[in-house]
Structure formats: C-alpha cells, structure tokens
Design a protein around this nucleic acid. Structure first.
Lengths: 248, 248
DNA sequence: CGATTGACACGAACACCGTTCGCTAGTAGA
DNA sequence: TCTACTAGCGAACGGTGTTCGTGTCAATCG
C-alpha cells in the first residue's frame, strides 16, 4: 500500500508522497495473521464477540480485506479448528494400558480446547477433516486397536468421543460467556453462586412431582466440571470395553 | 388494536373508522402464538433462519411487538426448549429391564428433537430447568434407582445423557441445514453423496501418516446416524453399569 | 519501455440481525 | 373523570457477514 496522494490538475496527474502520517510500512495481511488475531480475540472475549469487523479492526483494516484470504466466516472457523486440533497430543499405544491412555487422550482434548476458549463452538457441524483432527482420530484408532477393540466399534467410538468432548468444551465456553455477561456492571458471577442457584431450583421443586430430584438436590449439584468429565470419559471407555467383550 | 385513522385539522382531531382494509379483528399476540410460529419456522428452515423479524412477519406485526411477551431471544429459546422437552416420554421403571428402558428413553429424546428440527440448538449453554426437562431428569433418575445405580453416578449420568443427546440433535440439525444450503441452485445434497465424499477424504490420506484411517476408510463411513446413536447409547448405559459394578 | 493481467487491499453499500425508545390506544381501578 | 398499566409497534440504534467496484502494485509479455 503506497502512502501517496494523487491530485488532478486538469489533465495533469500529480503524485505527492504523503509520508507525514503513518509512514511505517503496513504489514501484509495473511491467513496466519487473521487466524492469530481471531484466536486471541476468542480467548479474551469468547466466540460470539469475534466478527470479521473486530478481526479487521485489530489488523488495522476493514472487513472486506479479509476476504482476499478466507472465503467466508465458515472457512475461518475451519482454519481455527485446524490450528487448535494440531495441538491434540497423540500417545504411543501401549497394549497394557491402552484404556488409561485413551481416557487421558480424551481429557487432553478438553485441555487443548480449554486453552483456546471459544474455538470448540466452531466445531459444530464440522466434519473433523483437518490434519490435526485426523491425526487425533488416527491416534484413537491406534489405541483401540492396541486394546483389541473391533474396528467398527472403534470407528463409531471415534465419532462419539469427538462429538462429546467438543460438546463439553462448547458448553463450558457458553457458560463462561454467560457468567461474564451476567457479571457485567458488578462483580463477575462466581461458580459457587451459580451452583447454589441451581441447587435452589432443585430444592424448590414440588415434592409430589419430583421426589428424587428434590431430595437429591445436593447430589445433583455435587462435583465440578472435571468430576463430571472424568466420570463421562470413564463411562465411555468402560462402555466401549464392555461392548467389545460382548462381541467377542 | 383499533382500525381507526386519526386526522388533524388544525386544533381539531378527527377519528375515522378505517374499516375498508383488513377489517377482520386482529388476533391478539401471546407467548403461545410466538412459540408456535417459531417452532413452525424452525421446522421448515432451521434455527439460523428464524429471527424476531421472521416470527413477527408471520404474525403480521413488527419485531418490537414481540418484546411485550418475551424478554429477549434467549427467553424465547428457553420457551422453545420447554415446549419440546414436555414431549419427552417418561417410562414407569421396571427393575428387571431398567437398562433397556433407559436406552429407549435416550433414543426417545432424540426422536422428539428430530420432530422439532432446530430446537436442540437452543439447548446450548442452557440449564435444563424447564418443567419438561426436569420431568425427564426425574425419569432418568428413577430408572437408575430401579437399576441400583448409586445416586451420585446417576446424577452425573443425567448430565452426560442430556448433553450428549442434545449434541447429537444439534449436529444433525446443522448437517441438515448444510445439506439444504449446498443443494440450493440444484439438486439437494443426498446423504450417500456426503458419505462418499467423506470416504474419499479418508481414502486419500497419506498412508505413511494415516495407515489406519486410510485402510479403514470404509469402516469409518459405515453406519447411518441411527447406528451411531444406538451404539453411543449402548456405550453410555453399559459404561454406567460397569462403573456401578466397580463401586459395589 | 509500455501495456496487460492478476492479486491484494479496502470503502461503500447491501440485506440482515436483536433490541430500545417513544408514542398511541385500550382497559381497569380509584 | 383521571390515572396507571399493559400491549402494540414504527423508527432508529448499533451491530453482523458479505459483495461490488475501484485503486495500487508487481510480474509478465510484446
């Protein structure tokens, strides 16, 4: 981008070097830079707060400029997922402890999503065909094979795992955004306040209609996100093993 | 809403009954009607295509009128979920077959979501505190108790089930919307075409990096949505039983 | 060297979104 | 009758993703 101004004096065109303002050379746009900025913004403000305009603003340009590098917002979503999925760790399968490795692998997925708040939201309805996601799937299939899980079960489990872990991450992201929004204008909402509020909902249910939920209000609200995810991961892996035994 | 026109003649105000056009009494707005229209539009065009404006248009008014009945779009989402969750069937627990009942209950959830395309999307980040969802949770807890599942495990399983089944429904909704959008301007995209395309992705992966996925391309793409959901439901219930046995 | 072409950059504008504000009309209660 | 409240709703606000048309620059060709 030249920093020149063009003046028309009748049939004469005059170029004047307008070096007075913003003389520093403007850094060229690229997909990399767009993805960098999008990820940084999502980390800070969540998925919904990131728009083509907000990204362009941080890059010192207008939203239309982004379209020279990404076809549309969907493609940007895909690029974000690709970037993040590249961070999923892939363990070397050990047949003696493949199931523990698998559990850890699923938890690691969530850890990576947590390190990139907002990005999980972009996985909705997206076939995980990015290199990183494919590498992860290959790793899960390898772990299952090391554990003697039939291929078809392993394939379907791959699907389930990706969907569930993505859903957990999405839900956490949405909750974080809601807590931040609710806290605006005052103290940010704390997790224990939200848990207490949910507990009150359960405890206030009519006993004739909801005898279990009402009497189990504390049980329903016991356990943090890690407890629940750890439990769900246990269920999925133990369930997979049970189904494999059933088929053998 | 009176069908009158007011004319100002200097200091004089004249009311004229404008019965000539649209003389039929206008039906009063209500939450019920707003929810009805929103559900109908979502069924036809998907979640993203339904806005306050589109709903208002079908009701023969402007978007601002809706705010006399619903606080905002979030509240409308909540009302939609409430409406749909009311349809979840609640079985009478039979200790001899509680697990089959539980599986069927989960599948029934998906069936209800499928009858209301788009609505699952509104469950994202929503505490399922609507009467319908609470009734469903009570039903799940009752089934688990009939099966001797420890309360804490049952409570966490409730969470997991709701999240996973909602995620499946959302993903199906998103896919349906994508297929419809991709088919615009020509033949709608058929499922087998999409499966073939995904198969090609797997089959085209580099063999050195993705030996399993590449050789198992057919396995990865075998099975329709019901196969995969049935499998996942099996995993979750069998996994829950395995964890309960482990704790006993 | 000048002309042409392709890629990048980007302002203006389009069509849409959720929501608020201010005003009018109708109804119920004092 | 007057007052207060509720419902209805147009205009406008501040935002979204995207397209169109124009200008600039660099590379290539004649």
């Amino acid at each position: 981008m030249a920093t020149e101004k063009v003046f028309h004096l009748g049939p004469v065109r005059v170029r004047v070097n307008a070096a007075g303002d913003d003389a520093a050379p403007r850094q060229r746009l690229s997909r990399e830079r767009i993805v960098d900025v999008a990820l940084a913004q999502m980390k800070e403000r969540g998925y919904e707060a990131v728009s083509m305009r907000s990204i362009a603003k941080d890059l010192g340009t207008g939203p239309a400029s982004l379209y020279a590098h990404v076809a549309n917002k969907d493609e940007l979503d895909q690029l974000l997922i690709d970037r993040v999925a590249g961070d999923f760790p892939i363990p070397e399968p050990d047949p003696e402890r493949w199931d523990e490795q698998l559990k850890q692998s699923l938890l690691d997925m969530l850890t990576v999503y947590r390190a990139h708040p907002g990005v999980a939201r972009a996985t909705l309805g997206m076939i995980p065909t990015s290199p990183g996601a494919m590498r992860n799937a290959e790793g899960v299939m390898a772990l299952c094979r090391a554990g003697g899980i039939p291929d078809q079960l392993a394939a379907w489990a791959c699907d389930m795992f990706a969907l569930y872990m993505g859903a957990v991450a999405i839900e956490e992201d949405v909750w974080r955004a809601r807590a931040a929004a609710a806290g605006e204008g005052g103290e940010p909402l704390r997790e224990e306040d939200m848990v207490a509020a949910v507990h009150d909902v359960f405890a206030s249910l009519p006993a004739d209609e909801f005898p279990l939920l009402r009497s189990l209000a504390s049980v329903m609200t016991t356990g943090d996100a890690d407890d629940r995810v750890g439990f769900a991961v246990d269920i999925m892996v133990e369930g997979l093993k049970a189904l494999a035994r059933r088929e053998a």
